[in-house]
Design a protein around this nucleic acid. Structure first.
Lengths: 148, 148
DNA sequence: CTACAACAATTGTATATACAAATGTATATT
DNA sequence: AATATACATTTGTATATACAATTGTTGTAG
């Protein structure tokens, strides 16, 4: 992936902004791919992310703020995101008995099953997206990314 | 930046998805920073991007499809994006005389001046965002990113 | 010359996101 | 106990984005 070629500029971009643009371009294409992979399942990336967080709870429900802080892309409105999952019957929502301000959200059996179908497609996508890189390269990449 | 800590999960994530998430997290925080830096100038990242593309034309106008293909994040609606810049008098739009289907967009003096103010702020932001990395690390990072 | 396809941009519309304000509940202060 | 403050979520609203359909223009085949 050549940055200058993709954004079609002749002049070469200085190292630091170039790096930021480079990462942005890759993340854009990764997001596009992931969105496309999830499309047949009729869930957005965010919705998928929430389902995985809920599964990670192993039966224990999570409240909205917990979900929110665990999401890769924080967003201001987790309520409406959960509404969508609720409409698909992938999650359940009930008010927390100990603290009625809070709400307890848990994944349903239907949600777990849907997620299992998505997992296979996602796994494949992740491997395809990183197919050109060796484990060593990826480890090195992670090390550099850690410095940000 | 530790991935697991940020998305608050105990279990360690496999290398390949972890790398993708890692990049996503960094790009998210970079975007946030850039958005914040541009906020006082009342332009979005996309609008700023278009202004820079137009300046790069050195007086020569660009049509919508040209702008669109040069943007870092392609978007489906460049017309409305240009509308916003038009309202701020940062750009001019006129129909192309040779091909009346096309439209010629060029940056105004006011646009150039506004952009110059933004440049300084952006340069600083870019340096801050990459301050923890050496040139060698950034070069290595770009090399690895090229493999995607 | 007319009909048709291709092109470039615009418009319509549904959905997503960001941000502020509002609602309802719990806790702390006097 | 009454009031105020903080908390967790929801709602309102403006803006952004994705995608499809439409408009106006140009090129081309018969």
């Amino acid at each position: 992936m050549n940055v200058e070629k993709i954004i079609k500029t002749k002049k070469e971009i200085p190292l630091r902004p170039r790096t930021l643009i480079h990462m942005q371009l890759i993340v854009n294409s990764v997001s596009e791919k992931i969105t496309a992979v999830l499309k047949p399942f009729d869930v957005s990336t965010q919705q998928f992310n929430v389902l995985r967080i809920l599964r990670g709870q192993n039966g224990k429900p999570a409240n909205l703020s917990t979900i929110s802080e665990r999401m890769v892309s924080k967003m201001s409105n987790t309520t409406r995101l959960v509404d969508k999952l609720l409409a698909k019957e992938y999650v359940e929502r009930k008010i927390c008995p100990e603290n009625r301000r809070k709400v307890e959200i848990s994944i349903t059996t239907k949600g777990i099953e849907a997620l299992e179908h998505m997992d296979a497609a996602m796994l494949q996508a992740e491997n395809e997206l990183t197919a050109n890189l060796t484990d060593q390269e990826l480890i090195k990449l992670n090390q550099i990314l850690d410095k940000f």
